[in-house]
Each structure stands twice: as structure tokens, then as C-alpha cells.
Design a protein around this nucleic acid. Structure first.
Lengths: 342, 342
DNA sequence: GATTAGCACTCGGGCTAATTGAGTGCTAAA
DNA sequence: TTTAGCACTCAATTAGCCCGAGTGCTAATC
């Protein structure tokens, strides 16, 4: 396994790049004219034949040009891909969208995802910032009527959730006091992932008075806690996939697949690195056999916090996707971190 | 203009229903076998020919069956459509999803929209509850650090918005006090639609001290106020449109159209009745020429508050769509109203 | 030994012609 | 007014054909 000759690498890289750009299988002649290789088409043909036999290229049919195989893309991404700088204009766009002034971390992630979908012309999914250390930091219950109150919950990750609550009995000072004392005792400082409805029941039952008034409040609290922690996938840019003609009919089944969320969430969970490229059938889901998924994690205070992923045809512009994802997740992490400073 | 003969009505209704079900142009033979009309195909042919000349039916080409024209659909919706009851199973599904326990009004509307998209197998858009009387009811600013606070805003429509704020100077009691006094003086009880960034500037400038501390707070407040009022369109169920093969390639352009929001928002605004059916080119947008839009408004405390719309091919199951929309918007209105009670 | 020119060969895409069949309109009889 | 019958139309399918981009192979050349 001595690796590919220099010229083979050059040819493979060119095939990938031309094919990504044009969508047509690339032949020997087309390749030399587009790449400035100074050798004849016959030589290229021989080399391509080798690459074909080695599994880096495939022919859609006998008398057509070559297309990169998954192995070819993989080799390209791992070894051949140029390091591309993100261009000035889109950089400004990103910088403008992702700034601490734009709101809470969740919003930042959302705009980041939208930007990414636009830039890459692919679909993108994001998960809200959720760290292992997502601890409940503050709970506030503000009465707004005799039977209603707004409840607000803030976690250490800066996630803020609010909802209205109604209780049957009157919302008096004693109930508020009890509520806060329960919060102080059981919830503040606790990881929001550890709060379960069952536990809420137990806690409510341990209260001396006002069980029936507190129960709905604690129920709402549990809802909020769960919602800060279920790193719900948000999907956007699906329309981009349709415009890319790579998928014809298959677009529908892909969209269905993406909309069912769980599997794609598994794909994301299974990715390990800061930035992880899964090409075609590396994804373990048949519905993704023509697609690549690039997962990038952003870090808040140095810890993995959430991720943004791009989903597109295997024939995607990997340098563009990867460079913009790197830039965006990096910026995103820094911005969220700074937004969380005291 | 004496209207259609009874048999013509029957035939038109059958053509619509069969075509909606099968997607194929319906011919004279197919019609009698599927509808139990006791006359011969030749008679049906004559009648269809009449309906064709009157503009209720069209032929895709000379030797094919008939398809309802827009006029045909319109007549069907206005005069022929049976009143269909929503079926037991989906009714339970809806009742389970839309209950005051499910959270604030905005969430209710969202689940309503999702349910509707599922039931009708179409795309659906919703607008959050926003009435003319959307007045700021309560503002709360809870410090969570020396420089950060969470701000919560509640409107009379039950819309609750929250965000984190950061200020440069220290967040002390005096600033809080000033903030609340400004709120009391300028914001509480005011329609959220009337708050503009320019006005915020003016108010901030009129403050004696702490201008620089208050400005970001008031800015955040203005953001929140605006967000309670911009009845942002939320779109879902796009994938449903793709599965319906009525649109082939055109699906892409339709999706793009829906994603650009403004025009569809205009369509909704232009609808007048509680429930309004716009068929094909009645919609004034070329991109909707093959689509129908059904807009239903829900009422809170008896006033128009927001809307849910279904967008699908002109060839949609109008009785199903309309009956489920009626049921859902009715329930939704009642639930939101009751959630707002003191 | 590597490279290149030349050539026979392959096979998908695009074009045209022929066939099929569902569905029509019209006419004439019931 | 309804119906049976018939000639006609036209989209969709199928078959046949050619074209040409692109290949692999061979033999000559560097």
C-alpha cells in the first residue's frame, strides 16, 4: 500500500473537481483540456483505467467517462482536497449574522444553520447548544393573574425557555414561596437532563400543603426542563436539495427520511470528530446512499455543545462545505461562549 | 343562468371526486362504473360535452377523459360538495394535541398546523395569534448575573417571549428601577405593534441617568415587542407536496415560492371569510396556478386572531380539507380563549 | 519502460416511425 | 331523449436506427 503516484493523485483530484462542477462523467480528453496536464489522452486513459481497477473511479457504463467512487471521494477528502479560504463576501455575511447582539444561543445556532444552507446550497440540520453540563441556573415564576403565571427557566448553557401556567386554586404568596423553596431544594444546580416526570410526582407528593396547586406548576417546570435538553433537530434548506438535479425522483424519499428526524439524529450522534465527513453508504442508511453528511460540532467554553450538519449529494463541493463549516462553527462557539460570560 | 340540471351536477361532482382520488382524467365509461349512474356512456358523453362547453370540464387532449376546470372545482366547492364529518380517529388525535395543558397559544397553533398538514397531506402555514388588541401586559427583567438578565414579555393575547440581555455596566437596583418605571410609563398597556426602534431611541434619550445601561435593555424590549407582533408565517409539511405527483418538476419552484413567505402572506391577508378557498389562478400568483390555498381564521374571544392555511394541488380533497380545518380552527380558538382566562 | 497515435468497438441518448388503446363526437335507430 | 355503433384522434409506448463520446488495445515512438 504505497499510495498513488503523483500523477494519479492529480488525475483523481481533477476528476472529482470537474465532476462536482459539471455533473457529467469526465473523459480523458475533457480532463486534459480542463486541467492542463501535459500528457496525451491515451496516457490519461491508462491511468484512469488503473484508478478504475483500484476502485477510485467508476464508469456509469462502458462508453462513458469516469465518476469518482465513494472510495475516490474519500481519498480526495482525506488527502487531495485543497485548503480553501472562505471568500470575503460570505465571510462578512456570516459575521453580520452571528454576533452576540443577535440574541440567545439558540437563535445564533439557527441563523448559523440558515447561512450554511444558503452557502452550501444543501440541506442543513442543527442541534441546539446542549452540553453535558447543562445545569438549571435560574427559575422564575411571575404571576400575571389570579390563576396564571409565566414561568421562565435559564440553564447554564444560556438556554432560556418560558411558558404560561394556569392553576385552579388561587396563586397566592404562600404557593409562590413553596414553589421557590422546592426549586431551590431540588432543581437549581441540577442537570436538566436528570429531571423526569416521575421524579416530579415524587417531589410534589412530599409537599405538606398545596399539593394540587403545585402539581401543575411542577409539571410545567418539568416540561421546560425537558425542552432545554432535548436537543431537537432543526432542518432547513430542503428546497436546495430539490434544485440539485442529482436526485431525481429519489429526492422525495430523501426528504421523507430527513423529516423523520430520528435516523439523521443517529447519524449525527455516531460522528466523532470535530468535523466528520460521511460519504454515501458510509452512512449506514440506505436512504443516504447517494448523499454525504458533514457533521461539525461547535464548542462552548471548550466543550462540545451542539452540532450543525450539511446534507447533500455525494457530489458536493467538499472544500467549500468543509471550509465554511469550520469557519461557522468556530465563530458560533466563540460567540455563544462570550454571550454566556457573566 | 338557471344553473345546472340535476344530472349534470351529479356528473360534475363525480368527475371531481374520481379525479381527486385517482389523478387520471375520467372518461364516460369509468364514470358510470364508479358512480352507479343508470344511463349509458353515450349519454354521459353528451352531458360531459355540455359541461365542457360550459367551461366546467376540460380535456387534457382530444382523446382523453375530462378533468375539472377551475370553474368546475369552484362550482363543486360552492354547491356540490358534501358535508363530511371528520372521522373519529383523527378527531381524537386533534383533541389530544390541542388542549390548554399543551402550553401557550403559539405552541397550540403550531401543533394545530402540524396536525393539519398530516391529515390533509398538504403543506400548511400558520400565523401566530395576533389581534388588533395585542397589548403589552407584563414586562419582567430578572437579573441572572452582574451584567446579564433575562427579559420576559407577555401580551394580552397570551404571547410570551423571552431573551437574554447583556449590558456593559453593572446591573444594579437603580437601573432595574428605572427600567421598570419606563416600562410602566411607556409600554405597559400599549399595543405592541406601535413600538418602533425610533421611538425607543427617543425614550432612552429622555432618561436622566444610565442612558448607556438602559439602551440595550430597551433595544431588547423593542425586539421582543416586535416579535410578539410580527405574525411570522410558519410553514410545514412541504414534503407532503412532493409525494403528490401532481407537481412534477414544478414542485421545486412551488417550494421556493412558499419559502419566500411574503407572497403567500399576501394571499392569506387578501382572504376575507372565516374560511376561504382560492383555487388555482384565483390566487394571483403564477406559481400557484396549479395549487389551491384554503385559509381558515381562528377567533380568540370572538375576534380574528390568526390563521392556518393549507396549500396543495388544485386536485385536493376539498371536503376533507375544509371539514378538518373548520374543526381545528374552531377548537383552537376555544382553547386559546380559555387559556387566556384570568 | 513509458508515452502516444491510431483504430475498432461499445453503448446511452436522441430521433423517427409504427402500434396501441382509451376515449371522443357524431349519426341513426329505438 | 336515450342508446348503440362507428370512425376518428392523439398521448403513450415500443422498436429501430444512427450518432458520437469515450473506451481498451495494439503497435510505433521516445
Amino acid at each position: 500500500m504505497t499510495g498513488l503516484s503523483e500523477r494519479k493523485k492529480q488525475i483523481l483530484a481533477n476528476v472529482v473537481e470537474i465532476y462536482v462542477k459539471t455533473g457529467e462523467p469526465v473523459g480523458s480528453k475533457g480532463l486534459i483540456s480542463a486541467s492542463g496536464l501535459n500528457c496525451s489522452s491515451a496516457t490519461v486513459r491508462n491511468e484512469m483505467n488503473d484508478l478504475d481497477r483500484m476502485g477510485y473511479l467508476v464508469q456509469p457504463h462502458t462508453s462513458a467517462g469516469r465518476i469518482p467512487s465513494e472510495k475516490g471521494y474519500r481519498y480526495y477528502v482525506d488527502n487531495l482536497m485543497p485548503h480553501r479560504e472562505i471568500d470575503e463576501f460570505t465571510r462578512r455575511l456570516i459575521d453580520a449574522g452571528i454576533s452576540p447582539a443577535a440574541g440567545d444561543p439558540e437563535k445564533l445556532v439557527n441563523t448559523a444553520r440558515e447561512l450554511l444552507a444558503d452557502i452550501t446550497k444543501c440541506a442543513a440540520v442543527s442541534t441546539a447548544p446542549v452540553g453535558s453540563l447543562n445545569v438549571i441556573r435560574k427559575i422564575e415564576l411571575v404571576p400575571v393573574g389570579t390563576h396564571t403565571a409565566m414561568m421562565v427557566l435559564l440553564t447554564s448553557n444560556g438556554i432560556l425557555k418560558s411558558r404560561l401556567c394556569r392553576i385552579e386554586s388561587e396563586l397566592n404568596a404562600r404557593i409562590l414561596e413553596q414553589f421557590y423553596s422546592i426549586c431551590e431544594r431540588f432543581f437549581i444546580g441540577k442537570p436538566s437532563g436528570e429531571i423526569s416526570p416521575a421524579e416530579i410526582q415524587t417531589i410534589a407528593a412530599s409537599v405538606d400543603y398545596d399539593y394540587f396547586a403545585l402539581l401543575p406548576l411542577l409539571g410545567a417546570l418539568s416540561d421546560l426542563a425537558v425542552s432545554t435538553n432535548d436537543s431537537k433537530l432543526i432542518l432547513g434548506g430542503e428546497a436546495n436539495l430539490l434544485s440539485r438535479m442529482d436526485y431525481g425522483e429519489r429526492a422525495v424519499s430523501l426528504l421523507r427520511f430527513l423529516n423523520s428526524r430520528e435516523p439523521i439524529s443517529e447519524v449525527i450522534r455516531s460522528s466523532k470528530d470535530d468535523i466528520d465527513v460521511k460519504i454515501g453508504s458510509e452512512n449506514m442508511f440506505r436512504q443516504l446512499e447517494d448523499s454525504s453528511v458533514v457533521v461539525a460540532r461547535y464548542k462552548v467554553r471548550g466543550d462540545d455543545s451542539g452540532s450543525i450538519s450539511v446534507i447533500g449529494p455525494t457530489r458536493m463541493d467538499y472544500p467549500l462545505v468543509i471550509s465554511s463549516m469550520k469557519y461557522i462553527t468556530d465563530l458560533l462557539g466563540r460567540m455563544i461562549t462570550s454571550a454566556l460570560e457573566e
